[in-house]
């Protein structure tokens, strides 16, 4: 699994003594525009990705088909084209994904012509590495097992992910380059200082770094960037009619995993998803927003956080995200 390393060496070792004439790679277009907030965020993220490519021996980029990782892919294109990505993409498949998201994932990877590794929780379950209480239980918490196994299998020393600090209070505390020990654990009480934008990427064998290039982006920034870059996202982000069940404070999408229990009734509502994750615990919100522009308008005035509205698994206890991160989760 050292092919990545070899690619990197090729990238940084110039062939000595050859005088080359370069042709323009792409069309010439004078750029006369305003360098604004999104440009600053974009440049920061590109800088971060290039640091990973240059300093880590064997990185990967986690791509789920969700909006944040869709943004990551565009940032990777900006960071590395006209070259290829200096890392493979990886998806940890819970087996509880929305089918249209998986379809989108595969299509996008094909468009890019990059390599995708898929490691699935089904395998971890079959191997007895994950033991579930019930088949329909949320699989999000167990993703860490499959993720850590994949990290060990490929000896990844860095995983680039699309987590943002505005998502959750434990994430708000995390470094951009977040060190994990040989058990994949995050130690929130003892994080490395992170000064200016000089990143310490050093790890010993078996340890790894989680890297979050869009740490400083908000949900609104992500949608504004999707609009600006005209990025395609899975359809379930847009308003559509769906059978749902009201449970607790949220709506759950009807599927083979979620069926009404005593007293619950199925409603057909106009909804959209703000995040896409495990089908058994990702709640859509009622919304008529059918375009990126309408989503931006809604996001700008919403009074509920992304995770508060959409993730039942984050609401089980006050520190559920922190606990999962300590166990190796993103």
């Amino acid at each position: 699994m050292n092919t990545m390393l070899n690619d990197m060496e090729e990238l940084v070792t110039p062939a000595p003594g050859v005088v080359v004439k370069t042709e323009p790679v792409v069309i010439k277009r004078p750029v006369a525009r305003h360098f604004g907030h999104l440009d600053a965020l974009e440049s920061e993220a590109i800088h971060i990705m290039r640091e990973v490519a240059a300093e880590c021996a064997n990185p990967t980029l986690l791509f789920s088909g969700g909006k944040d990782s869709i943004v990551l892919l565009r940032l990777a294109e900006k960071a590395f084209r006209p070259g290829r990505f200096p890392f493979p993409l990886m998806h940890i498949d819970t087996g509880h994904n929305f089918p249209e998201v998986i379809e989108f994932r595969d299509r996008r990877v094909k468009q890019l012509g990059e390599r995708l590794i898929v490691r699935s929780m089904e395998d971890s379950i079959r191997q007895g590495r994950v033991v579930l209480r019930s088949e329909n239980q949320s699989r999000n918490p167990f993703q860490s097992v499959t993720l850590l196994d994949a990290i060990a299998e490929f000896q990844f020393d860095a995983c680039i992910g699309g987590a943002r600090r505005d998502e959750e209070k434990a994430r708000a505390k995390e470094r951009i380059f977040s060190f994990r020990d040989e058990f994949g654990q995050w130690d929130p009480k003892n994080q490395r200082p992170e000064l200016w934008d000089i990143y310490n990427t050093r790890v010993h064998p078996g340890e790894n770094i989680r890297v979050f290039p869009i740490s400083n982006w908000t949900e609104l920034d992500v949608w504004e960037y999707i609009a600006r870059e005209e990025l395609e996202v899975p359809h379930i982000y847009f308003a559509h009619k769906r059978d749902v069940i009201r449970r607790g404070t949220g709506l759950l999408p009807l599927s083979h995993l979620v069926q009404p229990t005593e007293g619950e009734k199925v409603e057909n509502l106009m909804v959209r998803f703000r995040t896409v994750g495990d089908m058994s615990c990702t709640c859509p919100v009622e919304s008529p927003a059918a375009s990126v522009g309408e989503i931006i308008a809604e996001t700008a005035i919403t009074r509920i956080t992304e995770r508060g509205a959409t993730r039942m698994d984050d609401q089980t206890s006050e520190a559920s995200m922190e606990r999962r991160k300590k166990e190796g989760y993103f």
Partner: peptide, 12 residues
């Protein structure tokens, strides 16, 4: 996006 004639900090 294409080649440009000039660039300025903090562009990548």
């Amino acid at each position: 996006e294409g080649n440009v004639d000039e660039a300025i900090a903090p562009q990548s």
